[in-house]
Design a binder for these strands. Sequence first.
RNA 1: GGGCGUGUAGCUCAGCUGGUUAGAGCGCCGCCCUGAUAAGGCGGAGGUCGGAGGUUCAAAUCCUCCCACGCCCA
Length: 1111
Amino acid sequence: MTKARETGFAAPPAQFDLPGIEHGIIELWTSYAVESRSLHGRRPSEEPGAAGAEASQPQFVFYDGPPFATGLPHFGHLLAGTIKDVIPRYWAMNGYAVERRFGWDCHGLPIESLVEDELDVHGRAEIEALGVPKFNAACRAGVMRYTQEWRTVVQRMGRWVDFDNDYKTMDPTFMESVWWVFSQLWEQGRIYEGHRVQPVSPLLGTPLSNFEVAQGPQERNPKTGKDGHKLRDDPSLTLRFELEDEPGTFLWAWTTTPWTLPSNLALAVHPEVEYVKVRVVETGELAWIEPGLLAQYQARNRVGETEELARCKGSELVGLAYAPLLPYFAEYREREDGSRWAFRVVSADYVTTETGTGIVHQAPAFGEDDFEIGQREGLPLIRPMDLNGVFDERVPEVAGMRAKDADKTIIKLLKDAGKVVDHDVYRHAYPHCYRTDEPLLYMAISTWFMRVEDMREELLANNDQIHWVPERVGSARFGNWLAGARDWNLSRNRYWGTPLPLWRCDEDPSDIVCIGSIAELERRAGLSPGSIDDLHRERVDDITFASDKTPGGTMRRISEVFDCWFESGSMPYAQNHYPFDPAKKQYVEDNLPADFIAEGLDQTRGWFYTLHVLASALFGRPAFKNVVVNGLILAADGKKMSKRLKNYPDPMEVVEAFGADALRAYLISGPVVRAEPMRFGRDANDSEGLVVRDMVKAAILPLQNAFNFLVTYARADGWVPSAETLAARPATRPQAELDRWILSRVQSFVAELRGEFEAYNLDNLVPAWLGMCDELNNWYIRRGRRRYWRGADEGDGDKAEAYATLYRVLVTIAHCMAPVLPFFCEHLYQRLVVDLGLAEGDNGDSVHLQRFPVVDEELIDPVLEGQVAQVRKVVGLAMALREGERIGVRRPLPSLTVASRDPEVRAAVQRFAADIEGELNVKTIELAQDDADLVTLSAKANFKVLGRKLGKKMKVVAKAVEQLDAATLRAVLDGGSVEVEGETLGADDLVLRREPLPGRVADSDGEITVVLDTTIDAALEQEGLARELINRIQNLRKAADLDVSDRIELAVECAAGGKLSGALEREDLRGLIEGETLARSLAVNSGRELDHRGQDEIDGETLGLSLAKSS
RNA sequence: GGGCGUGUAGCUCAGCUGGUUAGAGCGCCGCCCUGAUAAGGCGGAGGUCGGAGGUUCAAAUCCUCCCACGCCCA
């Protein structure tokens, strides 16, 4: 380190290799345990092994949403991971201790499905035959299979998160806390047993999740042309139900599931639809049906001619009682009090008049609509079959038969009884089992619910305390969801999950005990303390104990496990084994709610919701204060990223090609960090992630170039920063306006970044940097270049300030972009500070252990910043004029005139006249207030202002305004007014436009008009030629691979008497050339041929150049 | 089927409570600059603002309907 101090900056590498730099930085972080020091909130001067400082530091609380580790990380994970890294890094740099524990979601369907495939056991019967212990052991062994890959990828992306102190939802401590959470809800009376209609795969004997249903066989529907569930032919059965009070009159009802007919308990009609009572002429039968559908039956010759007897709305049919179709469950005809219970007409809005009869058979235990109607009407739930769809003894004719197989028998039974009006075939899309290909059966299944509906107001009130990014997700999407929150079905009929801690008496099903801890279970079951070391089903299902309430009753655990969202929502408590771990209890309570979480939009109803519901129920407050919601990342072609289609590049290949910093910057630069979808790619064909390379070019290379610039000249000049240079604010304000400006600009940039970070607006961070970067490279360094490039004895004071200023700027940028570009900023910090022995501690200092820059208001000069912006606008206009005239910038021009009525603009131009002259290569700058002889003025109406005043008169006035002449407009500009169509208009009512007068090389932008004088006399022409010559010589120097500071001998051959030789005769220009190219000698037409030779051409004159390195 | 969102240049996106030349970046083409530059600057081409109605003096913007896509729910 001492050596580095003596020698200053190391030579910049010839090649820029961001991935290579990043690997070096990872090694650095590893060898000095930088990551762990940051995670534990230590300052650079503290030893890695020293006691943690977190106790004395304020906490910034972050929760990590757990991913499933059953697959490898994709871009969505990398995006969320980047967000989860950037924000904590910022707060860590502001002195907060930010605990970042990685979370693993271990339970649930994905891993169970995977294991089912691997073991080739499917469904309840096979899994139970294999044995839950074996099945769960396989899940346990498989669920963490990719943890190492995750760790590698996450580390490579530069995300700092604690993998050693992670949490897993399958840890016994985690699961015990989940039990505790549940027991709290139980004590609040929030848990109840209910039913819910779910799709069941009969062969598997298990209910399927939506996810599994969606995986079932798909088929294109020829009618709609869309993919959907596989089509199947089901019986279409029209049946006659006889009215009890009007024997001989029937309701014609329709179904496609004859196997549900034994469980029929009602018929549904639409209250607003009209029905008719008809007599079938041929048979004399009297029947109710919807008339349009009757016509369809008749068109198909299923029903003969009819005559209409009556007509009424469905609502008038509601309440009619009918005789049971089949002789089952007749006991539900009336309640004990004699009121009508089942077998009656009910009203249902979902009934359509597209198919069937307009009267629909209802079996509340089958089908969601039926279930809901049944609940509303208080109908019993009759499900005479098990989960395999096998009928029980309650329907003797089909007992032991499987549901779909029973269809034929039931139809025959009904035909024999004369109950069938029509028997047809109905082709429709229907969900099938993804595994067995069988049609699924929808049936009501017992499940456990958490009462949420009565919490809606509290949920909404707590939501008001959350800062959502973007806001609309919280107010609209999440808010609406909370406002309509339904009770949460939190049990699943699965195996690998946290078991519901409910034990039920085998003698009395209402005798239930909820167990809230391992100790309680051990005590009740008479087990020795500490004997239960795991809570999975194979460990707890067999534990029984005697009932307290029911003499002789034995308590056995119910079979269900938790919806794994319940576990995710419990993580704030469960990750710290709350409330069982006395060391962490207070810590958890003190740090509720979290300061920050981030996940994808798909978690609105997932993790965000479950966190919120549980925190509201348990602690009466939200679970988090700030949440950043990211959108989905699509492939470059706009489709979902799909492994099969290979429509996206491998994330790690992108990282190794272009760098993790570039990928991070790209990912957080768009609306995807505001919950909008993003296409990953430059265009539809970008399969390599070229957008990421674009980000290298835009955000990282310019910074690298600025750094290289400093190093190149500092080395040539032997300039080395001192501890004083490191301070963000110089001891004395620099003399040069340029330095004062860039210092101000950098402080404004720091303020801008701080604002964005604290508003959790990630998408503005990189654009803000790109703006700063442009100012640094394309103005500060570009304009300041000559301050560095001059002899050691010239202008020493200014040169030292120039170095110090650029150095300060780069160090500040390295600090404040570090959260976003952790690798490259670390690289800069190491090269700029640590390598030079200027670091705070000697134990591997890192920019990430530094404090985020605090805005230094003293350095901010808004007027100066505004003026430079005006100056850059002037330069831009003038550059465009040169372009239009095809006069290269190397050719000097006599003058530029800047005319503006705005005194600020004139002041700016005056102040920076030298910079404008240098930048534009003009000899003088003229200022003018009046542009009357430069431009023609014209005006348009200011619609925004006038529209409100004038209304319908707007159009006439607008037209008249366009006719106003320049003199009138000038008068208005000078504070006057003008009468148009009876309206008095002032300057604010008009929008002025300036058009350069023909014949002038001029242009205008708003209040600024610039005019370029393009007359080139002989002297200027010669100077231009000299500068062309310098350019050619510099190119030759470069081609000869000379060092910037190498001196040369130079020889030029050109046509005697030509313009070039004329220029070379001028002593001042020869001096200029020699100075610029570091030539010790300049021989013209001497016939000498030096080591490096080149032929060139300027303005049509050929010339020969040769040069040699001077010894 | 419902909730929320998206649709603007070849691509990625800005366009606030309506206001008259609809912008930026990238890409493309042309020119220019450069001894820090795998860079940079300037200019150009490129848009029926998803479609159709409506409100208004005025609609990319507000309303209605439709189409396409996405997430979630059913």
